[in-house]
């Protein structure tokens, strides 16, 4: 249960970190952010990086900024720093609720949002949020910056579009307009465990009908994704208990779970239905 040997680098500037990453990526060099996924993986010997490039000492990477209708989350923003007060409007309330479902307090103190995205566990809550809200990832290397849309970023089980020499330099999320309705539900065996199924629903309402719907599912397939069939079913309709039930059932039928756990489809349908009911403000068991 001890990590295998590695070389440790603690750069003092982002430029130095990018140079080290460019040099060491071909030799299994990796970024060390919060270490809350990488260090356990090393202790279990499922990850054996030969070099760790620790970004914890880099100044200015812990910024959480709002501007141009975007929330920008820097690579050293810890889970615990995502709070209702720090993000305006419905997005702040949504992220605050989601944060409480990630692991336990001591892990939230260290683990980072960007680390979760780079790690791309299919059950990660931040990955679900990025996929559902249409977030974008800022990838940075010596070669330059590029933005990667969430639907292109998550490529499968713990696999992303990041190149080995790229630092995930930020997550950009659209700030949700006032009045946006949302619901988040997950099922996990114990508080703080990774979810068995998780869903986020975001509804834009106009005159009592759903003008636009975003529904995401996580922890069921090899990556989080939106559910276009169920979204289409809801659009331009008034939310009723029956309609939401129908949308959740429709969503379930389109899922391709990665395992044959017989409870998974039912859990997925349940979390989707509950997320939708919360978003619509309808009581549904």
């Amino acid at each position: 249960m001890k990590p295998p040997p590695f070389h440790y680098h603690a750069p003092r500037t982002e430029a130095e970190a990018l140079a080290l990453l460019a040099e060491l990526a071909p030799e299994e060099g990796r970024i060390l952010a919060g270490g809350q996924s990488l260090v356990p993986a090393m202790a279990l010997r499922v990850a054996r990086p030969s070099h760790l490039i620790d970004i914890n000492g880099l100044p200015g990477l812990d910024r959480l900024e709002v501007g141009d209708g975007q929330l920008r989350v820097g690579p050293l923003v810890r889970h615990a720093m995502i709070r209702r007060e720090s993000v305006p409007g419905p997005l702040g309330a949504l992220l605050d609720k989601v944060r409480g479902h990630i692991a336990h307090l001591p892990i939230r103190t260290r683990g980072t949002v960007c680390g979760s995205l780079a790690n791309a566990d299919p059950a990660s809550e931040w990955c679900l949020v990025a996929a559902t809200l249409g977030g974008a990832m800022l990838a940075r290397s010596m070669r330059g910056d590029r933005m990667i849309a969430a639907e292109d970023f998550f490529q499968g089980f713990m696999t992303t579009a990041l190149e080995p020499d790229e630092l995930l330099a930020g997550l950009h999320l659209p700030v949700l307009p006032e009045g946006t309705r949302w619901g988040f539900h997950e099922f996990s065996r114990r508080a703080g465990d990774y979810a068995q199924a998780a869903s986020l629903a975001v509804l834009e309402m106009r005159a009592g009908t759903i003008a636009a719907a975003r529904i995401g599912i996580g922890a069921v397939e090899d990556r989080p994704r939106r559910l276009p069939e169920a979204e289409a079913l809801l659009t331009n309709r008034a939310p009723t208990a029956d309609l939401l039930r129908q949308a959740a059932a429709e969503a379930r039928a389109t899922l391709l779970p990665t395992d044959d756990d017989p409870t998974r489809p039912a859990l997925a349908e349940t979390v989707i239905r509950r997320a939708l009911a919360d978003a619509a403000g309808i009581e549904l068991p």
């Binding site: 249960m1 270490g35 260090v39 202790a43 279990l44 001591p106 260290r110």
Partner: peptide, 28 residues
């Protein structure tokens, strides 16, 4: 206990905040 973040036995305070001592390197 577990040395991979799950059991909580190793929890200490780092600058006043609880962290897992098994998931932070001593050099950090």
């Amino acid at each position: 206990g577990c040395e991979h973040g799950v059991c909580g036995a190793c929890t200490v305070l780092l600058d006043g905040r609880a962290i897992r001592a098994c998931l932070v390197l001593a050099v950090q």
